[in-house]
Simulated assay, not measured.
Amino acid sequence: MKCGKRSRSATMVAAVFMVMAGPVLAQTPPPQNVGVIELQPQPVARVLDVPGRAVASEEVAIRPRVGGIISEILYRPGTPIDAGTPMFRIDPLVQQAAVTQAQSNVVSAEAVVRQARTSFERAERLVGSGATQAEVDNLRATLDQAEAALAGAQSRFQMSELELSWTTVSSPISGIASLASVTVGDLVAANQQAALATVTRLDPIEVDLLEPAVRLQRVVEESRTGQLRQADELTATLTLESGRQYEARGELVAPGTSVSMSTGAIEMRFRFENPEGLIIPGMFLRGRIVFGESDVFLVPQTAARRDQTGAITVMVVEDGHVVQRALTATGSQDHHWIVPEGLEPGTLLIVDALSRIAPGMEVVPVPATVGEDGVVRPTPQEAPSGN
């Protein structure tokens, strides 16, 4: 009986020691190693990516200035033509007849002037001996009327010649001619509403870029406060619908002067060289406007999380612990978010092991690098020198 009691007592004492020793023997996991980069502000072009649409720098509707029957179509649709190139010919018989009649009226008026001048000069010589001053004055008035009639006849003759020249319809600008809306034999009228064709100039081409007024106001404010160093000239680049970067750089033609009531955007027009005709009117494009340069932080996109509102969050190391930061990006560049504020020079941004950490955790920062492709790579450690 005594042996049994001693055995149970020893077991209880052992259990008490095990409970007391438990917290002492448990091991706390070591701090997590995380890859970090040290952020420093750097000059970056201040750009805004906006939608745009191409418009012709020049476009003219070809309409007849005289009426008649189309007798010839003198151009090939879709080919470049120069200013002054004949495009249509209207049957000129009516206008030629008008020229002949106007010319005969001029000849008749010239004869009347000659007769009136002869009578006036004769009467002027015979004043006091065979003609009165009143007769001279009447003959002078007759001469003036004849000269006025001659001037009118000459003007009508010039107008008839001009209308005859209008029977050949030419392009006033250089560009690409469209399909004709008429065929040989069609009757056209002077200054009709329907155009015979259109000629569009494609080089240079102009692009309307639609910039949200709110973002443009932010750029203006940054310029006023000195955060933005303005460029000497406002320029833009384009991305085609195929995703190809357009090589030419555009210059500002006209800044926006009003805000659209439907979109809240300001329309800014830029002109681009277009020698190959890659851009045609009506084409939708993506534009990037360069406003100047500002000092910002470049945050790798792989190190940030972005929500539906556009805000991004990152993890940084402060005093050996993970801290979450909410930031606002104004754009992107080469797999990086452009962040103008919310960070300090020397901030240790966590770029690796993000899935294994949470705010408040103790971590050990390990230097890392982010390549141009946005991939995180560990920074090679220098080998210790030996003797």
Rank of each mutant, 00 (worst) to 15 (best):
A177Q: 11
F88P: 01
S104I: 02
E222R: 11
G386Y: 01
Q115Y: 06
M261F: 07
C3I: 11
D307I: 11
I70F: 11
F270L: 10
P51F: 15
S160M: 01
S178Y: 05
E276Q: 14
V363T: 01
Q158W: 08
V290N: 15
R125H: 08
V322A: 09
T200P: 01
A149C: 03
S7V: 14
M159A: 15
F17Q: 07
A194N: 13
H336C: 06
T85E: 04
V339D: 03
S258I: 07
G287Q: 09
S242K: 06
E211P: 00
I357D: 05
P365R: 02
G250L: 12
Y246Q: 08
P359A: 14
T132F: 02
V317E: 02
L349Q: 00
R201Y: 02
R224D: 00
I205F: 03
V106R: 08
R6H: 03
A123N: 05
P86A: 14
V259R: 08
Q245F: 11
E221Q: 14
Q96S: 10
G277Q: 09
P30T: 12
R140S: 01
V314T: 00
K2H: 06
Q154D: 07
A111D: 07
D82A: 15
M1Y: 10
G250R: 12
A358N: 06
S71A: 15
A98V: 02
Q115P: 01
M268V: 12
V316G: 10
Y75P: 04
E110K: 10
R306M: 15
T330F: 05
I279P: 11
E241S: 15
